[in-house]
Simulated scan of single mutants.
Amino acid sequence: MSYAIVYSSRTGNTALLAKTIREILGEEACVYFGPPDAQALAAQTVYAGFWTDRGTCDEEMARFLQSLTDQAVFLFGTAGFGGAPAYYGQILERVQANLKESVRLAGTYMCQGQMPQAVRTRYEGMEDSPRRTAMLSNFDRALGHPDAGDLERLRQAVTR
């Protein structure tokens, strides 16, 4: 079975997940690895990775997902805010809305990803409030993610 790994990664978090999937599956049946590109459409299964942009995938990945026709797709992604499976579920629903009915969803995986220091600096500049405190706390919890536990859970999701 041929596969492609297509990913969009702004900070390297989703790229780490993509590289881990390639290690899990091996390179023999991999027909494409990289950013969204029509070359990936030749694969029977597409592993499509994204970073979360305003509660969904970025526009480039959305366009790519809309171009899929009859492949199986495994969606994986990272989000700066994490810890709540319901939140990840909402993101995945929005991302799945880009898929045609003929595309079969083979699986999903999401985890928290660390954010750039500029985000923390922006949060620190906000007016003191419970929201600011929560955002700073989440930023600090995200440091180091995806971590070894995240990658093991990804491995389990891919090999199911």
Results as ranks from 00 to 15, higher is better:
residue 1 M to F: 06
residue 2 S to D: 13
residue 3 Y to R: 01
residue 3 Y to W: 08
residue 5 I to V: 13
residue 5 I to E: 05
residue 7 Y to S: 02
residue 8 S to G: 15
residue 11 T to V: 03
residue 11 T to M: 02
residue 12 G to R: 09
residue 13 N to Y: 04
residue 15 A to T: 14
residue 19 K to S: 14
residue 21 I to F: 07
residue 22 R to E: 12
residue 23 E to D: 14
residue 24 I to Q: 03
residue 27 E to A: 08
residue 27 E to N: 14
residue 27 E to Q: 12
residue 27 E to M: 13
residue 28 E to M: 09
residue 29 A to H: 11
residue 29 A to Q: 13
residue 30 C to G: 08
residue 30 C to Q: 10
residue 32 Y to A: 07
residue 32 Y to T: 12
residue 36 P to I: 00
residue 37 D to G: 11
residue 37 D to N: 13
residue 37 D to S: 09
residue 38 A to V: 12
residue 38 A to F: 13
residue 38 A to M: 13
residue 41 L to C: 08
residue 41 L to H: 03
residue 43 A to L: 03
residue 44 Q to L: 12
residue 47 Y to R: 00
residue 49 G to V: 04
residue 50 F to Q: 00
residue 50 F to A: 03
residue 51 W to V: 07
residue 53 D to K: 14
residue 57 C to M: 07
residue 58 D to K: 01
residue 58 D to V: 02
residue 59 E to F: 12
residue 59 E to P: 11
residue 61 M to N: 06
residue 62 A to L: 06
residue 63 R to M: 14
residue 67 S to H: 13
residue 67 S to R: 11
residue 68 L to V: 06
residue 69 T to K: 13
residue 70 D to M: 07
residue 72 A to E: 13
residue 77 G to L: 02
residue 77 G to A: 02
residue 82 G to P: 04
residue 82 G to T: 03
residue 85 P to E: 14
residue 85 P to D: 10
residue 86 A to R: 03
residue 86 A to G: 01
residue 87 Y to R: 11
residue 87 Y to D: 11
residue 88 Y to S: 02
residue 91 I to H: 00
residue 92 L to T: 06
residue 94 R to D: 10
residue 94 R to Y: 15
residue 94 R to T: 08
residue 94 R to C: 15
residue 95 V to T: 01
residue 95 V to E: 04
residue 95 V to H: 02
residue 95 V to G: 01
residue 99 L to Q: 03
residue 100 K to A: 15
residue 100 K to F: 12
residue 101 E to K: 15
residue 104 R to V: 06
residue 105 L to K: 04
residue 109 Y to P: 01
residue 109 Y to R: 00
residue 110 M to R: 00
residue 110 M to D: 05
residue 110 M to L: 12
residue 114 Q to C: 09
residue 115 M to S: 04
residue 116 P to C: 14
residue 116 P to N: 14
residue 120 R to D: 12
residue 120 R to Q: 15
residue 122 R to P: 05
residue 122 R to C: 07
residue 123 Y to G: 07
residue 124 E to H: 10
residue 125 G to T: 05
residue 126 M to N: 10
residue 127 E to Y: 07
residue 128 D to A: 10
residue 130 P to C: 04
residue 133 T to V: 15
residue 134 A to Y: 09
residue 134 A to W: 11
residue 137 S to H: 14
residue 140 D to V: 14
residue 140 D to I: 11
residue 143 L to I: 12
residue 144 G to H: 05
residue 145 H to G: 05
residue 149 G to E: 13
residue 152 E to A: 14
residue 152 E to R: 10
residue 158 V to A: 05
